[in-house]
Simulated scan of single mutants.
Amino acid sequence: MQILVTSASGANGNGYGSLLSFDLDGTARGTFSADPRITDPRGLSVSADRKLLYVNSGSDRILALDATGEVVRDTGPIPGLNAGGGSLAPEGRYLVGLRSARTIAAFAADLSGAPQRILPVDIVPFPRGFASAEDGTVYLASGIGPNGEGENTIAVFDAYGTPLASRFIADDAVSPLDLTIAPNGNIVVSSEFPFRAPHATTSIREYDYATGKLVRVFTPPSGIAFDQPRGLRFSPDGHLYCVARDSVLAFDFDDGRFLDSVVRMPRLNGQAVIFFPLLAD
């Protein structure tokens, strides 16, 4: 098993602009794939059989890679796509956050055909990560955009796109940057509040899936760098990982303990993190 991280580039983070691989102990393995179609990558997701890695490329296309890093599926360029996060829905479609259109679209698992919007355009001021529960319920983090537009909450929709709650949480200390669903069904978000403030408070926050009530706050000990948190994922052993600027942090989700800054890399500017089998696994 390896840890994969997308690193932003240029105006979006001055990072490496590539898909990076690390051993579970944080040792850098280098670029997972050198395919030129992967530029300024964002969202990541792994197929249910763990054979395919879906990557949202800044070149306005979605790619699927095998364990060797070879591209095996490609939507081709989709003008104006501007994809953010990505997540496989329980029924198998690949869901993608569209930052310019302020919505979520679905692709067939084989990436054939045109994307289908599952929510209306401009459904939130600025989408900041989402996840689909086993019953099809979609939780969409509504955060602050680069130009200061937006809000700080979570919107909820049923499997048919019908709004269930426009403000699922009431938390005066959150500005969500990514969202995932925990093994216990609760909603977990990474937060930088106020967004882009010089001395923003960074944290990971867990909310009850039924009520939206704040359950816990995860933070590392004083002295551990945790700047610009972004992508969240659970490891196969149930630990919670968050990629941030220059690092990937791990927490024991059961008891809330900080475990380690697993990855330390200057200019990482991570956007998404995920676990993918090594070729020899």
Rank of each mutant, 00 (worst) to 15 (best):
E134W: 04
L88N: 13
G43P: 04
A173F: 05
S222H: 07
A225S: 15
L278M: 14
T31Q: 15
L119P: 03
D25S: 14
D252Y: 01
P77M: 12
L53S: 11
T27G: 09
I123F: 02
D281M: 04
A8I: 08
V138N: 10
P183Q: 09
V72D: 04
D227N: 14
P266I: 06
F234E: 03
G15F: 01
R257F: 00
N184Y: 01
T75K: 13
L249N: 10
P221L: 01
I3L: 10
D74L: 05
R61E: 02
D237M: 09
P90I: 06
V124D: 03
L95M: 11
V46I: 09
L268K: 08
L249H: 06
A89V: 09
D49A: 10
Y54R: 14
P125L: 10
I274K: 06
T180W: 00
S261Q: 12
G26Y: 05
Y16A: 13
V215R: 11
P36A: 14
R216M: 01
Y16D: 14
V243Y: 00
L259W: 02
G143K: 09
A89R: 13
R61Y: 00
A197M: 07
F276P: 06
L179C: 08
G97P: 04
R37M: 07
I62Q: 11
L98G: 10
G270L: 01
H199L: 13
Y207P: 02
S21V: 06
E192P: 02
G150R: 08
P198A: 11
A34N: 14
D25N: 15
D74P: 08
D237H: 11
I38E: 03
N12W: 03
I274L: 02
A114K: 12
V55D: 03
L240H: 10
P41E: 07
V55M: 02
S261R: 12
P176Y: 02
P125C: 12
D172Y: 09
A173D: 11
L52C: 10
T219H: 05
G143M: 01
G76T: 09
A133P: 03
E134N: 13
S21F: 02
A48F: 00
S132A: 15
D281H: 06
T211M: 00
P236W: 01
A101F: 02
Y209D: 08
F157V: 07
N184S: 15
A159W: 02
T202A: 03
S191G: 04
S142M: 02
G84E: 05
D49E: 07
R93C: 09
G84T: 11
L88F: 04
C242M: 02
S190Y: 00
P266N: 15
G92E: 05
T162R: 14
I38Y: 01
P115E: 03
N12A: 11
N56P: 03
R93E: 12
A109G: 08
I224A: 09
I144F: 00
F107Q: 09
M265A: 14
G231C: 04
D35W: 03
P220E: 01
T31I: 13
G136C: 06
G17N: 04
I224S: 07
R73L: 14
G129I: 01
I144K: 12
